[in-house]
Computed example of a mutant assay.
Amino acid sequence: MSKKLTIGMFGFGVVGQGLYDIIKTKNLNLEIKKFVIKNADKKRTLPAELFTTDPNAILDDPEINTVVELIDDAEAAFEITKRALTSGKNVVSANKKMIATHLEELINIQNQHGTSLLYEGAVCGSIPIIRNLEEYYDNELLHSVSGIFNGSSNYILSKIFNENQNYDVALKKAQDLGFAETDPTLDVGGFDPKFKLAIVASHAYGIYINPDEILNLGIDKLGNADIRYAREKNFKIKLIPLAKEIENHRVVLYVLPKFIGKDHILANVENEYNGVLVKAAFADEQFFLGKGAGGHPTGSAVLSDITALRYDYKYEYKKHLESQQVTYSTDYTFKVYFRYEDEDVLENIQFSSISERFYSDDHKYVIGTINLQEIIDKRDLIHQDGNFLAEIL
């Protein structure tokens, strides 16, 4: 028999509204007792007495046993989550930055207080990747987890490659549709997929890694010359996070734009869709596809966590408990395309080898192999205006 959940919800934006729409159509033994919102004057679609600006109305209410946290501010979300877990309330969150940054501390708090924090909605919208890594791949040796984790940048790239739109037009359209924020840096700069990658790495490999230590370069420096190069070579460009185990139980993590062949499985993940590609020793290659942005897709993942709490579900973090620990490494060499403006920049970057150089009136590029640590060390140089770096798969 499932237990009744009395819910206090922080935030009533796109995902909160999407979640409420889904809940009211079903008989799930759930009740949302209170919403805490930032703006008291905003017109709401629900009765005014359901809303308050006081967090204590939820956190101090003994009847509320479940907190759903759907706000943007990562530090405020962390304080809410910490207080709720400490006071015996379970929490469902979709805040990837908060979870990626504070995961180890949050796991310790749960263990101490016997509470549960679930966050399927924080990673890849409607795709149940966390639950699969926890349950299905719990004993599986994973070679890599990669994919398209950010619907906004993927939407922009789809418009560029499928409809010949330029970057600025595609970005504006993504913003108009609510797929990208007014300040799109989190998405197009690769920060959003980096937070998701840190969470995935924890469930896939049992490592806690501060997101600040993971390299992320985005698509915000993408230029017409790069798009032309991709078309000539029959490539598409996708923004792809990668978690990959290499020799000696080391794991590499990074987020980079990649040139991929049109027959690659990720080449056909378009618009706001996300795709997760898992390569495992025994199960071989498996692929998950689903909507990664929007109120109802993310709302459905949050709801799946809420309903799991009716049966006292919690993540077990089995990979963290295994004796065969893996370590994070940035010593990894791969092939890249690097477009640059200033010859001095190229002279200051150590490529392991260069196989192709191109000069024209309007741009220059090299194709070569480079070590991940070198990109991290020279990141500001590599990513300054006029330069663009992408991996070639």
Rank of each mutant, 00 (worst) to 15 (best):
N210G: 06
N210S: 14
N210R: 11
P211V: 10
P211E: 09
P211G: 10
P211I: 11
D212Q: 15
E213Y: 13
L215I: 02
L215G: 03
L217D: 06
G218L: 06
G218N: 08
I219G: 07
I219S: 00
D220V: 01
L222S: 04
N224S: 15
A225Y: 12
D226G: 03
D226T: 10
R228S: 13
Y229H: 12
A230W: 05
A230M: 05
A230R: 01
R231G: 03
R231S: 06
K233S: 07
N234M: 03
N234S: 12
N234C: 01
F235R: 08
K236G: 01
K236N: 06
I237Y: 02
K238A: 02
L239D: 00
I240H: 05
I240G: 08
L242N: 06
L242M: 13
L242F: 09
L242C: 09
A243P: 05
A243C: 14
K244G: 03
E245G: 08
I246Y: 02
I246N: 01
N248G: 11
N248Q: 14
H249F: 14
H249I: 12
R250L: 14
V252I: 15
V252G: 08
L253P: 08
Y254D: 09
Y254P: 05
Y254G: 02
Y254L: 05
V255N: 02
L256N: 08
P257G: 04
P257K: 06
K258E: 14
F259R: 04
F259D: 07
F259W: 10
I260E: 08
I265L: 15
I265Q: 14
L266D: 00
V269C: 14
E270S: 11
Y273K: 13
N274R: 09
N274K: 08
N274M: 13
N274G: 14
V278H: 00
K279G: 02
A281S: 14
A281Y: 12
A281R: 12
F282I: 14
F282D: 14
D284A: 10
Q286S: 06
F287W: 12
L289Y: 06
G292Y: 00
G292K: 01
G295Q: 05
P297F: 06
P297S: 10
P297A: 07
P297V: 03
T298P: 01
T298F: 10
G299Y: 04
S300I: 09
A301T: 07
S304L: 11
D305R: 02
I306C: 01
T307H: 06
T307M: 13
A308K: 14
L309M: 05
R310L: 04
Y311F: 12
D312A: 13
D312R: 15
Y313C: 11
Y313P: 07
Y313K: 15
Y313G: 05
Y313A: 13
K314P: 02
K314T: 11
K314W: 00
K314A: 10
Y315A: 00
